[in-house]
Nucleic acid binder design. Structure first.
Lengths: 262, 262
DNA sequence: CGAGTAGTTGACATCTCTCAATGCCGGTGG
DNA sequence: CCACCGGCATTGAGAGATGTCAACTACTCG
């Protein structure tokens, strides 16, 4: 529940500060560098060479905990950081004048948020934690500077942005030409794959977002989301209990998504 | 009408080759460099410093004519170029297995197409000319190399990609939470602004795309597009004659777009 | 001149939305 | 400890918007 609505300004410190108490330890320094992060193959460093990785390790950035309901940034906030999710779940959304909200994405561990701010120097969307989460706030200017000296590293950044573009492509496809069942199937299959890539079950998971948020993301009302969940359960494709979902018949789910039933 | 369905492989030549017949001219060389292009303030060089512009002028790229219905690239084609529209109109689209098409964008003079290919090294969408057009095929690898030496120039590229992300954000908003009238109003206002930025009338223009293509882009059927045009005409907001559109009441159109009527 | 394409319009079907009632759960305070 | 409240989810009934199918016109191209 979003109790704390206030936007929390990023605390710009180095990782050393976060681990102040241990800095005098005689053994290896506390590892909060990208190269030793367990998410390195999914996150920012994905696809980087060893030398790029070394470069990246010189980058100082803050780790932050974000409580459920807290915002990372809002529409119009100055763009300074991109955020890597270490743990938890976040959502990004856009607002229309009249208050209608459109969720533009959900982000889990190893994914990057905030790239939309580059164009205008200000964020075009708002991002909020759906559960207690932890993020790395990476100063984009520093990252750019680093990349300026290594074209291969620059390429990684470019690819990250392009990936965001293709991600949105799929969502447009979904919003533009699918019915409710196809939308929900696409959503669940996408989540399933992302969990699988992180070593979690691809068949059973806990949704961190409400029916209303799923609906906003998929361009339908919460009641329609709920009904579609029920329909899938009726058909023996899913077992649903509130936010807990088990995919019983993966093939059938994929079939819903791929083929125009009607 | 898309008669020529065959994909035309990019002709990789330098601008000199294109103007072969004039290369011996004693006067100034034929200007096909970005710095002297009449679209420079809208297109790739937008926001570049003088020195970046000089750099950019060393880039060799081909100009190509594309006939109506010809494709520039298709889904899955190897990513080599980004394309700057010099004249005419293009559309990009995605395909679902069952043949459903989702138009993901329309592009006019000064706009860039093809950035979606960076992530995978292959294009995620297909792009086709809606009328006889002319484009610059810019080798992305060369452009990256150029930018590697100048961080300000790198920043321009990054910004272009981010702009594409925010563009798609708006489309998602549209597809996810607007009704037919709001969608068409948003579409026309967007076109109007883009024409205005190019020195054309913002009130009267000729649509280069069919009702079906507009519908696909906006996530509705062609009949609904047609009916919505008629409705706007009834209301005295537009005058429509096939593809010729005149905006009679700009304020009313903006009102449709901004406010939830219902 | 005939065929084909694009656009408009009507009648009807269908899907999703809207509104409303209900149940469930967790947190809070008497 | 339990009653109450608020938020979330489910479900039903009916309304409304958009999709579907079909007919007709206008225009273009051989």
């Amino acid at each position: 529940m979003p109790t704390a609505i206030a936007s929390v300004p990023p605390v710009v410190t180095t990782v050393q500060v976060v681990h102040r108490g241990l800095s005098a330890s005689p053994v290896a320094p506390v590892k909060t560098q990208c190269s030793s992060c367990h998410l390195r193959d999914l996150c920012l460093p994905c696809g980087m060479s060893g030398s790029d990785m070394d470069r990246l390790d010189t980058l100082k950035f803050a780790r932050r905990k974000v409580k459920a309901g807290q915002t990372l940034y809002r529409e119009g906030d100055r763009f300074q950081f991109i955020y890597a999710v270490r743990a938890g779940t976040l959502k990004s959304s856009l607002m229309l004048q009249d208050g209608r909200e459109q969720v533009s994405g959900f982000y889990i561990a190893g994914e990057l948020v905030g790239l939309d701010g580059v164009a205008q120097g200000a964020h075009a969307s708002a991002t909020m934690a759906l559960e207690d989460s932890e993020i790395c706030a990476i100063p984009f200017a520093h990252l750019s500077d680093l990349a300026a000296g290594a074209s291969s590293m620059q390429h990684v950044i470019t690819r990250l942005m392009s990936r965001e573009i293709t991600r949105e492509h799929s969502l447009m496809m979904l919003l533009g030409s699918m019915n409710a069942e196809e939308r929900l199937a696409a959503f669940l299959l996408n989540l399933s794959q992302r969990y699988a890539a992180r070593g979690y079950s691809d068949r059973e998971f806990h949704l961190r977002m409400s029916r209303a948020e799923i609906g906003s993301y998929l361009g339908m009302k919460l009641e329609t989301v709920s009904r579609t969940f029920s329909a899938f359960q009726q058909l023996g494709i899913l077992e649903v209990d509130k936010r807990h979902v088990r995919i019983v018949d993966m093939e059938a789910l994929k079939h819903r998504f791929n083929v125009r039933v009607h």
